Amino acid sequence: MSKPFDMELFLAGVLTGSHATRQRHLRQARIIQAEIAERWQRETPWGWQRKHIVWFIKHHLAGRSGATRYYYLLTVQLLVRRLERSWVFNCQKRI
């Protein structure tokens, strides 16, 4: 029996800001993790590829407000920084 992945511990080194901000990032990171795990069976961020996050941004955030997309992208940036990757996401909504 293995322990469930602890997103709080994973992001501990890169989380900054107020308590509310840290909680928002944790909540959003858990949502991202759950969606990717359900779609691709990748339980931890260590197994993610750039395409997994792009899929999340395109499909899960489609139709969401600009503010929601912005806050999720901030969380994605934290995840990428923690993974020590150089992935860049250009997610401006096209009008």
Rank of each mutant, 00 (worst) to 15 (best):
D6K: 00
M7V: 04
F10S: 03
F10D: 01
F10Y: 09
L11S: 05
A12F: 01
A12H: 00
A12C: 01
G13K: 04
L15V: 06
L15Y: 04
G17Q: 02
G17E: 04
S18P: 02
S18L: 09
H19W: 02
A20P: 00
A20D: 06
A20V: 05
T21S: 09
T21R: 06
T21N: 11
R22K: 10
R22D: 05
R22T: 00
Q23K: 09
R24C: 07
H25N: 10
R27H: 12
Q28H: 08
Q28M: 14
Q28R: 08
R30K: 08
I31M: 08
I32C: 01
Q33V: 04
Q33P: 00
A34R: 08
E35D: 03
I36Q: 07
A37S: 08
E38I: 05
R39H: 07
W40F: 14
E43L: 13
T44I: 02
P45Q: 13
W46P: 00
W48A: 10
W48N: 06
Q49K: 11
Q49F: 13
Q49L: 11
Q49D: 13
Q49V: 15
R50Q: 15
K51L: 09
H52Y: 07
H52E: 14
I53L: 15
V54P: 05
F56Q: 00
F56R: 02
I57R: 11
K58N: 12
K58L: 12
K58T: 07
H59A: 11
L61H: 03
L61D: 03
A62H: 09
A62E: 11
A62I: 12
G63S: 01
R64I: 10
S65P: 04
S65N: 15
G66R: 02
G66A: 03
A67S: 14
A67C: 10
R69W: 02
Y70H: 13
Y71P: 01
Y71E: 14
Y72E: 15
L73R: 08
L74F: 03
T75W: 07
T75M: 04
Q77F: 03
L78W: 04
V80L: 05
V80T: 11
R81P: 01
L83E: 11
E84I: 15
E84L: 03
E84V: 15
R85W: 14
R85S: 09
